[in-house]
Nucleic acid binder design. Structure first.
Lengths: 128, 128
DNA sequence: ATGATATTGAGAGTCAACTATCAATTTAAC
DNA sequence: GTTAAATTGATAGTTGACTCTCAATATCAT
């Protein structure tokens, strides 16, 4: 039997409200607004359950820690800000990616990641 | 003063000869053909120096351990075999990737990764 | 409300990738 | 060849991301 607890309710709402993929630590920080004593282990446990349910997905990009996002968000790729390390969504996708694979290779998924500075970090660095 | 040692010479030649990005452990194994007592710490130390020199670059792809390759190899992307975990080069690139970034974002690099089965694993899995 | 059981928070433990330490060895300027 | 300084190999330690343990607490069927 799986209990629906206060912490899972709060954590689920963090995922629903998030506008970008978050790390477990970011999720924990946000949830502590409502549940100040929330432990990181509980965040990981909830993420594990949400992943199994299929309501959350793992976002792994090179050069960044693992992030998680609501599975309700549609297929997209990411922008990694090399300055603040946050992830942002890219809108759209490019065609012809799968045709890059050599003969005989079976392509099942693909990932596109852009690296650089997000708009707010780009403004900050042009100031200094 | 930086000494040019036997181990650095051997490690540099591994990178030159490699036909794909390698993990530190793979590099160490290959180098032990010439230097059986080579320690993994020395491999990491050499990689660090080579990275600083700019003669080697880090290849980070989600779902695979960090790999390293000669910087002399030209810009390319990767195929990760989900079965044998090896990395393979993709030939060519797709255009229009940078235009996926939102307004105000500064794109400095990009990465494209395909996931699936390499030709030899695809053959093996169709047999069984 | 009660009680069986799932969950929680805190902290210890794990794991992989790497880094520091240090005595022994190698390098290279002389 | 000597010798000061860099490097090496072995191994212990660190780091980040996560998992386990366990006593205290919350949940929910009754």
């Amino acid at each position: 039997m799986i209990y629906l607890t206060q912490q899972k309710r709060v954590l689920a709402s963090i995922f629903e409200k998030a506008d970008r993929p978050l790390t477990p630590v970011e999720i924990c920080e946000r949830a502590r607004t409502d549940l100040p004593s929330l432990g990181i282990a509980t965040v990981y446990r909830a993420i594990k359950q949400f992943l199994e349910d299929g309501q959350v997905r793992l976002v792994e990009v090179p050069g960044a820690a693992p992030h998680y996002e609501s599975a309700a968000r549609h297929h997209h790729h990411f922008f990694v800000c090399q300055s603040c390390k946050r992830l942002f969504d890219l809108i759209g996708c490019v065609r012809g990616v799968k045709s890059l694979a050599p003969q005989g290779f079976r392509v099942k998924q693909h990932e596109i990641v852009l690296y650089g500075e997000c708009s707010s970090c780009a403004v900050d660095s042009s100031k200094s």
